[in-house]
């Protein structure tokens, strides 16, 4: 499990390719779900793929004020998001690259992408960018403790921050064995909504200065850069969904390296991710965007919930 074998590397890379290529599909499914439940027809499920290809072929307009930070942000975002996919188990209980990095590295790499996104928002010298960056700074500073305490709960319950260790112990333990994990689940779900920019945190389908957060930071992007940013957002989303699924509901995941098990595991994990995506879409249409300073309460709930999880473990 700790050795990097040739088949392991090939398998790991194909898993990453699977996640990268499926990520726009999840976005499409979530959009379609929202459209259907609002009695709209909506764009086809594979529309995000068309969008990416269309944008990749378009010319770019960039701001005169911007510097190289603005130019390299899409690449850094994409590269970090894809690299994270190497460290997480998808259909097998361990990732062939699991020994290289743990969940703290995952958080760190996502953080690096977000760091550059915030800077890119400030780089273009527009007040929209500053506005988005300011809100993004606020959320990420507050989500950080919630995320770390959730990791804390998961790590002490499952014996490690190594994601392969977490998933394999989670697979052995039955779900309701520990109430602490349930609290971690609540906390992690809130973080998932916050990090992927879902309602009530952020509404990615509008461009209204009152509500937008992530969209405001990337407002100046166009063409190839925009395609990369959109795609890396989709990859980040699918990775967080996979992590959620594999940490909290891992059953059915392949526990040994055999073709039949892995084939079943892949199918099952895709089904799980899609159903979780649909669930999130349903939650999104049920609630409206919250006032900015009320959303902080939700993050506080997440922190409190994970803290309760910690206390449950120790008592």
């Amino acid at each position: 499990m700790d050795e990097l074998s040739f088949t392991g590397i090939i398998f790991g890379i194909s898993q990453v390719l699977l996640l990268v290529s499926l990520s726009p599909l999840i976005v499409g499914i979530m959009r379609k779900t929202k459209a259907k439940s609002q009695k709209r027809i909506g764009s086809p499920i594979i529309q995000p793929y068309f969008d990416i290809i269309k944008l990749l072929r378009k010319d770019e307009v960039i701001s005169e004020q911007s510097s190289w930070i603005f130019r390299c942000t899409p690449w850094i975002n994409f590269v970090t998001a894809v690299s994270v996919a190497f460290f997480i188990p998808v259909s097998l209980i361990y990732s062939p690259f699991g020994v290289v990095g743990d969940i703290l590295l995952v958080v760190g790499l996502f953080g690096l992408g977000k760091f550059f996104t915030i800077l890119a928002g400030l780089d273009v010298a527009s007040s929209f960018g500053g506005l988005g960056s300011s809100r993004e700074i606020m959320f990420s500073a507050l989500v950080e403790p919630a995320l770390f305490i959730t990791i804390f709960v998961i790590a002490i319950f499952y014996g490690g921050t190594n994601i392969s260790t977490i998933v394999s112990s989670a697979n052995e333990i039955s779900f309701l064995a520990a109430p602490g994990v349930l609290f971690a689940l609540i906390a992690f779900f809130i973080i998932l909504m916050a990090e992927t920019g879902k309602l009530p945190f952020d509404n990615q389908s509008t461009h209204l200065e009152l509500t937008m957060i992530h969209e405001a930071t990337i407002l100046e992007y166009s063409g190839k850069s925009l395609a990369l940013i959109e795609w890396s957002q989709a990859i980040k989303q699918i990775i967080l969904l996979t992590l959620f699924v594999n940490i909290f509901i891992p059953w059915g995941i392949a526990d040994s390296f055999s073709w039949s098990q892995i084939g079943f595991g892949v199918l099952l994990v895709i089904v799980k991710i899609i159903s979780l995506g649909i669930l999130i879409a349903f939650i999104e249409i049920r609630i409206a965007k919250w006032r900015l300073f009320r959303v902080v309460d939700l993050i506080a709930i997440s922190i409190a919930s994970s803290m309760i999880g910690v206390i449950f473990f120790f008592i």
């Binding site: 290809i53 990749l56 072929r57 378009k58 010319d59 770019e60 307009v61 960039i62 701001s63 005169e64 004020q65 273009v124 010298a125 527009s126 929209f128 407002l219 100046e220 063409g223 190839k224 395609a227 990369l228």
Partner: peptide, 17 residues
Amino acid sequence: VKIMGGKTSIKKYNTWD
């Protein structure tokens, strides 16, 4: 990106105001 996107140009312009 180079293969899929082909050759595109980059134009510099004002920030959207």
